[in-house]
């Protein structure tokens, strides 16, 4: 596979793993290693007296780059402050911008997301924008200066796969920044499909961290992303209505 380059940061893996939902740090470590990921998300929360949860030390020890998110933010102002705090705490200008409209769907709020993106880009951030599978909004986020657009396949944590593959293809067809399929992945075939549709990478958490065997699923996702990437590059055969013999006629 060619390297994935986002905002000048280079990754040989096209699978981005979120750390949310892992039962414990030992399972998370084995899953991260099996996935081969070089970029992983963390959230920012109030520190207790003992300090962090240990996830920061783990990710740094594994030499994986951090992608802090703004999960839990409802407004552009909250997301901008959270990103600034993440930059200060973690010494990175990368941010996964997510502004959720409500707790039940966790769908991105398009207006707040776009406003936050404009402000974060102006403040020097490398913005990975979590967005609806809306080809118009994806372009607007790109024009705002986002380094990557990350359309959802389905709502966060649902494992429903890619509900509107054609929209993902439309986003890919017009994007000139990397497209990362984010959210909704349930199993390996979903990740492979994302890559076959032309996405540059896949971001997932729940599908691995809440699988019965997270380490094994991480390995499956790694293979799926590689397989989908190769298939996209190889160029699939056209779909046909009638059979076409693959053996010579008598």
């Amino acid at each position: 596979m060619d390297d994935l380059v986002i905002g000048g940061h280079k990754f040989s893996s096209r699978l981005i793993i979120g750390t949310g939902g892992a039962a414990n740090l030992e399972v998370l470590e084995r899953s991260l290693l099996a996935s081969g990921t070089q970029l992983t998300t963390v959230a920012l929360r109030r520190a207790d007296a003992e300090g962090g949860s240990g996830v920061l030390e783990l990710v740094r020890r594994l030499d994986i780059e951090l992608l802090p998110n703004t999960a839990g933010c409802r407004t552009a102002a909250e997301a901008v402050l959270t990103a600034q705090l993440a930059r200060e705490a973690l010494d990175t200008d990368l941010v996964k911008l997510e502004v959720h409209a409500d707790d039940r769907t966790l769908l991105p709020d398009p207006l707040e997301t776009l406003e936050a993106a404009e402000r974060l880009v102006a403040d020097g951030f490398t913005v990975f924008a979590y967005t609806n599978d809306d080809p118009v909004l994806a372009l607007r986020l790109e024009e705002a200066g986002c380094a990557a657009v990350m359309p959802l396949g389905a709502p966060i944590g649902t494992g429903l796969g890619i509900r509107n593959p054609h929209n993902i293809e439309l986003i890919v067809a017009r994007a000139s920044v990397p497209v990362v399929l984010d959210a909704g992945i349930g199993t390996a075939s979903d990740a492979a499909l994302a890559m076959e549709l032309g996405c540059d990478a896949v971001l997932l958490s729940t599908a691995v961290t809440r699988a019965a065997d997270p380490e094994r699923m991480a390995s499956a996702m790694r293979s799926a992303v590689e397989a989908g990437y190769l298939a996209r590059g190889a160029g699939r055969v056209p779909q046909r209505f009638w059979a076409q013999a693959s053996s010579p006629p008598r």
């Binding site: 979120g18 939902g21 998300t41 963390v42 962090g52």
Partner: peptide, 10 residues
């Protein structure tokens, strides 16, 4: 005053 740190997430 808010003191924040990284935790597992998304």
């Amino acid at each position: 005053i808010d003191v924040l740190t990284a935790v597992q997430g998304g």
